[in-house]
């Protein structure tokens, strides 16, 4: 194992932590943060795994850029929906978790 493999290993830890938080927490903002932690972990696996033993690979780096934009768009949309839901209901959780 060389230096490049550090990234996917850290990515796995981040994914597992994010998944745990996503399941355990009910507050929507926390769940959204958990999703973003998982996303970062996934991106680390994507870039790091492909570059192990082969040097720089521009393809996964470009994929991750695309992935980041998609994640930013999803997170922003989730925040807009979350704030509107909070505004009409006064709750920061889904109705079944209140």
């Amino acid at each position: 194992m060389n230096g490049a493999m550090l990234f996917p290993w850290v990515g796995i830890v981040l994914c597992a932590m994010g998944l745990f938080a996503f399941i355990v927490h009910r507050h929507l903002l926390r769940r959204l943060l958990a999703f973003n932690v998982m996303g970062s972990g996934t991106f680390l696996v994507l870039v790091g795994l492909a570059q192990d033993g082969r040097g720089v690979d521009p393809v996964p780096q470009a994929l991750v850029l695309t992935g980041i934009v998609v994640a930013v768009a999803s997170t922003a949309l989730a925040l807009v929906i979350f704030r509107r839901w909070y505004r009409v209901s006064g709750h920061a959780r889904l109705p079944e978790d209140v």
């Binding site: 996917p8 994914c15 597992a16 998944l19 082969r54 690979d57």
Partner: peptide, 30 residues
């Protein structure tokens, strides 16, 4: 919490196996 911990442990374990068992890529896109 217990269920989440179990799920995440399984998840991390499966991913760790996946990393350790990874084959050498056949296609060289770079």
């Amino acid at each position: 919490v217990a269920l989440a911990a179990a799920a995440c442990t399984t998840f991390a374990f499966a991913l760790a196996v996946a990393l350790l068992e990874r084959p050498v890529p056949a296609v060289d896109l770079p």
